[in-house]
Amino acid sequence: MNNNTASEADTVLTGITTTGTPHLGNYVGAIRPAIAASQNTDVNAYYFLADFHALIKCQEPEKVHQSTLEIAATWLALGLNTDNVVFYRQSDIPEIPQLTWFLNCVAAKGLMNRAHAYKDSVQKNLDSGEDTDYGITMGLFSYPVLMAADILMFNATKVPVGRDQIQHIEMARDIGQRFNHIYGEHFTLPEAVVDDHVAVLQGLDGRKMSKSYGNTIPLFLPEKQLKKHINKIVTNLLEPGEPKDPDTSTVFQIWRAFATKEQTDAMRREFENGIAWGEAKKQLFELINEELREPRERYNELMENPDYIETTLKAGAEKARAVCTPFMDKLNRAVGLYPLV
């Protein structure tokens, strides 16, 4: 039984963890395609700030709070259509932790033992001679259950994820199926949606752009700082006039993520003709800056107006709770938690 019986449309859910400042890799890999999808009126879409999830990795309150502001401002500045989607903060939905407990009570520990993040942490402990579970919190261990609650609460049918997250969707299916078996059909089982064409940007050092590597280009840097960051991209020692291989170049890889096909083809020819690295970086800065100039202005305005962001998130939470509060009432009754008379 799907609690969203008013529509046969797919329900799509996307979570954004509130740790750190969004960078160009986040933008091309997740934010830009998700915002484009937010214009589609044919789906029920939920976009949420996963601040409960942030606590698993980050125990610096100011950082979590600031990241929530920055990420919300980023999505709104880039044009997220909040008329078409439900945009909310996870911690504004008290039904989420309640459902997490219900699911904890049916989720198999053996299933959690197989979670990639937990296994990776255990292996690191073993490699360093530590106790198996040294430093591993219950937040990390049961993270897939919280993710399952996020998904099952709204009976999401499609969850866009990277390949490394497919296991969590499969776990959500397993947990939802177990609950359905015990308490009756309440949850629709979600499907992972993986877009293999999503760009994975290289960072300043040529590795995947990641906060953990410290090689990112923050999304809304002022123009001068953006130019400085782009100039830091590592290149080889080939001189101007010497042909350069675009397919091994971080500069070209980032160019391709922002350029049209015609612009990409033209830059490929420039590489073959030996464009100077300084000129290639100058053109890359101009290309990125042109795409981000107007959103950057909106972002800066929003950062000065947190009241507007808070109002927007509260309105999204109201829309979300209009769905999950009555559904949670049904689940309470299903497990036996309801008034005696």
Rank of each mutant, 00 (worst) to 15 (best):
P246R: 07
L340Y: 12
P243A: 11
S121V: 00
H229Y: 15
N81H: 09
R268Y: 09
V335D: 06
G203Y: 05
N4V: 09
A108S: 12
P190F: 04
A199L: 07
K319N: 12
S38Q: 14
E8H: 12
I175L: 09
L201N: 09
T17P: 11
L55R: 13
A34N: 15
V43N: 14
K227N: 07
I56Y: 09
S249I: 03
T250Y: 03
R207Q: 13
R333I: 03
Y27S: 06
G129M: 01
F179N: 02
G25P: 06
N4K: 14
E290F: 14
T21V: 10
L152S: 06
A9P: 04
T250C: 08
T260C: 05
N2Y: 07
R178V: 00
T325I: 10
Y118T: 06
M171Y: 13
L99F: 09
E318C: 01
H116F: 12
N44K: 15
I233C: 11
Y338I: 03
F52W: 15
E270S: 15
Q177Y: 11
K227D: 13
N305R: 08
D205C: 00
Q39Y: 14
I93Y: 05
G139D: 06
H53P: 02
Q123P: 01
V194P: 08
F258D: 04
V341M: 12
T14C: 13
P160I: 13
A45Q: 15
D205I: 00
D10C: 11
P295I: 01
Y27L: 04
S249F: 07
